[in-house]
Design a protein around this nucleic acid. Structure first.
Lengths: 125, 125
DNA sequence: CTCTTCCTCAACCGAATGGTTGAGGAAGGG
DNA sequence: CCCTTCCTCAACCATTCGGTTGAGGAAGAG
């Protein structure tokens, strides 16, 4: 498991159980047992999920007697939003520019400016 | 492969090659061959990656003679940002409230009635 | 010390993933 | 018609993943 950090975060959240854990941890810290309670899988399986989240930096586990309280490290989520927003914005920008090009494109036989025809040919219905 | 949409999108972007494809497609549509060129894997492997992105709704493939131009469908990215922002914000809010509690806590920590008041004694502000 | 509680480690298993190679369909160009 | 280009489908292989069970460590309670 030597993937880059971004891949680890995306992969960690690709599992609905892990996403649900993150959602619950956003409200309050919890112990492994508390986290495991709603799901009908073994506690070991939950511990494994927690380890995936921990390796992604999404979660940290401290020590309180026998308990291992789990805490959400929400800052890592910014890694993803930064990446996503970057390309969403770029695609949006390109789309906007494409609209401009189409708007200024005289469709080969209609040299008149076609930017005004929002409802061409009248409304049939 | 019957996962929920959100899982599919997260899983699709958990691979650095696929993320790179999305990044390039944000700039311009491309054919499978063009997309495959930078990577030293077979074209079939790239086609498989494209299929993962397509199943996630991130990409669409049309037909232009022998070409299969690939187009990025950036709106799906909002699915993720919505999910992420929801819990990032919730965690942030919880953190802010914890700060408030700590700020209003006097040195002597012996609350007579834990459930009675959010700001016991005189409110300093 | 013993016992119980909470949790993790290790080994194993079936299914999914990411890659390969080989065959073949679809759409033009000669 | 044949031939080339672009791409996908199918079969196969190694690795990873999500789950299980069994064993065991850590820290209080008796």
């Amino acid at each position: 498991m030597a993937a880059d950090p971004l891949s680890r975060v995306f992969a960690a959240l690709a599992d609905p159980t892990r996403r649900d854990m993150v959602a619950r941890l956003a409200g309050a810290d919890a112990t492994v047992g508390e986290l495991a309670e709603p799901y009908d899988v073994s506690v070991q399986a939950v511990s494994k999920h927690l380890r995936v989240l921990e390796d992604a930096g999404l979660v940290s586990r401290s020590r309180d007697a026998q308990r291992r309280p789990v805490h959400l490290e929400a800052e890592v989520l910014d890694l993803m939003t930064t990446w996503i927003e970057r390309y969403r914005r770029q695609a949006e920008e390109r789309y906007r520019r494409l609209d401009d090009v189409l708007a200024s494109m005289p469709d080969d036989v209609s040299p008149t400016h076609p930017t005004d025809d929002t409802t061409p040919g009248g409304n049939p219905s």
